[in-house]
Structures are given as structure tokens and as C-alpha cells.
Simulated assay, not measured.
Amino acid sequence: MDSNQNNDIIGDFSLICPECGVGNPKNTENCIVCDKDLKHTVAFFEDDPFDLEITEEHLIEYRKNFWGTDRTGKINKYALNKIKKLEFGSSISRLIFEYNRKRVILPLREENLIKIKEFLK
């Protein structure tokens, strides 16, 4: 077998389903495993204390347990057009913004902070 054949890209499965965590092809309308509607999902990031979904209109925070292994069921949904005073970074990587006159601080992995900057700037 030619070694170049192993390097062929079959597809881009970078759209992670917020429901089941499976990678889907970009621009797919529904998850290939759980059938969740993905038409409005722009990006999804798995992090330690929570997972973040960015849709066309919202930043959605899915809280996890202390160990970061399971979701708790608590969901915080922030309308993008109401997010004010957006900041990135600090001595630790975090996303900071004002929402409904309250300061929200979300600590993130550095690689997720870099990717989120692309979507929210």
C-alpha cells in the first residue's frame, strides 16, 4: 500500500455535537448519531468545568461536576447581542464579559480561548 494513501483526508468532522459529543461534517443540519438539530450551532468546545456551545445567537454554558466528567444539568444561556465589555485572557486563560449588568468569568483551556476569540470578536 502506498504511504500517501494513508494521508488522504476523508472529511472534516470538526462540528462537535453538544448533545452526544460526536464529530459531524461542517454545515450538517443534524447530528449523524443523535439527530440533534445543528443548523444553528457554530462551534462547540469541551472544557474542564463546562462545555461551551456557540450558536448564531447565543453562548451556551453546560456546567459539569467537580471532576469535569459529567454534566450537572445546569445550563447558562447568554444572548450574544447582550454580552458587553468582552475581554480575553489574564494571567490565566479566561473569558470575561458583562451580562445583564453582572460580570461573568469563564476559565478556559488556552486552546479553547484562542478558538473562541475567532468566533466572538
Score class of each variant (00 low, 15 high):
2 D>C: 11
2 D>G: 15
3 S>K: 13
3 S>W: 08
3 S>P: 03
4 N>A: 13
4 N>L: 15
5 Q>F: 14
5 Q>T: 11
8 D>N: 06
8 D>L: 11
10 I>F: 11
11 G>Q: 02
11 G>L: 05
12 D>Q: 13
12 D>G: 12
12 D>E: 13
12 D>N: 15
13 F>E: 01
14 S>E: 08
16 I>N: 03
17 C>A: 04
17 C>H: 07
17 C>E: 01
18 P>A: 11
19 E>F: 00
19 E>M: 05
22 V>S: 05
23 G>R: 02
23 G>H: 00
23 G>F: 07
24 N>E: 00
24 N>K: 09
26 K>R: 05
26 K>E: 06
27 N>F: 12
28 T>G: 01
28 T>P: 00
29 E>I: 07
29 E>M: 15
29 E>T: 14
30 N>A: 12
30 N>W: 01
32 I>V: 10
32 I>M: 05
33 V>C: 02
34 C>V: 11
34 C>M: 05
36 K>G: 00
36 K>T: 13
37 D>G: 12
38 L>I: 09
38 L>Q: 04
40 H>A: 13
40 H>Y: 09
41 T>I: 11
42 V>G: 00
43 A>C: 04
44 F>Q: 11
45 F>H: 12
48 D>M: 00
49 P>A: 10
49 P>I: 04
49 P>C: 08
50 F>Q: 01
50 F>K: 02
50 F>R: 08
54 I>V: 11
55 T>Y: 05
56 E>W: 03
56 E>I: 08
57 E>D: 06
58 H>N: 14
58 H>T: 10
59 L>N: 05
59 L>A: 10
60 I>L: 14
61 E>P: 04
63 R>C: 13
65 N>M: 06
67 W>N: 09
68 G>L: 14
68 G>A: 13
68 G>T: 11
68 G>D: 10
68 G>P: 03
69 T>Y: 01
69 T>N: 01
69 T>S: 03
70 D>G: 00
70 D>W: 08
72 T>E: 08
72 T>V: 06
73 G>V: 10
74 K>G: 06
75 I>E: 10
75 I>C: 10
75 I>D: 04
76 N>C: 14
77 K>R: 15
78 Y>A: 07
78 Y>C: 07
80 L>M: 09
82 K>A: 14
82 K>T: 02
82 K>C: 13
83 I>Y: 04
83 I>G: 06
83 I>S: 04
83 I>T: 02
84 K>H: 03
84 K>C: 02
86 L>K: 10
86 L>T: 06
87 E>N: 08
87 E>R: 12
88 F>I: 10
88 F>K: 03
88 F>G: 14
89 G>M: 11
90 S>V: 04
92 I>D: 13
92 I>V: 14
92 I>S: 14
92 I>K: 15
93 S>A: 15
95 L>P: 06
95 L>V: 14
95 L>D: 05
96 I>L: 09
96 I>K: 09
97 F>V: 03
97 F>T: 02
97 F>R: 01
99 Y>A: 09
99 Y>E: 03
99 Y>R: 03
102 K>M: 01
102 K>W: 02
103 R>K: 15
104 V>G: 04
104 V>C: 03
106 L>E: 04
106 L>T: 09
108 L>E: 01
108 L>M: 09
109 R>M: 08
111 E>W: 13
113 L>K: 08
113 L>S: 05
113 L>V: 04
116 I>N: 02
117 K>R: 15
118 E>H: 10
120 L>R: 14
121 K>Y: 06
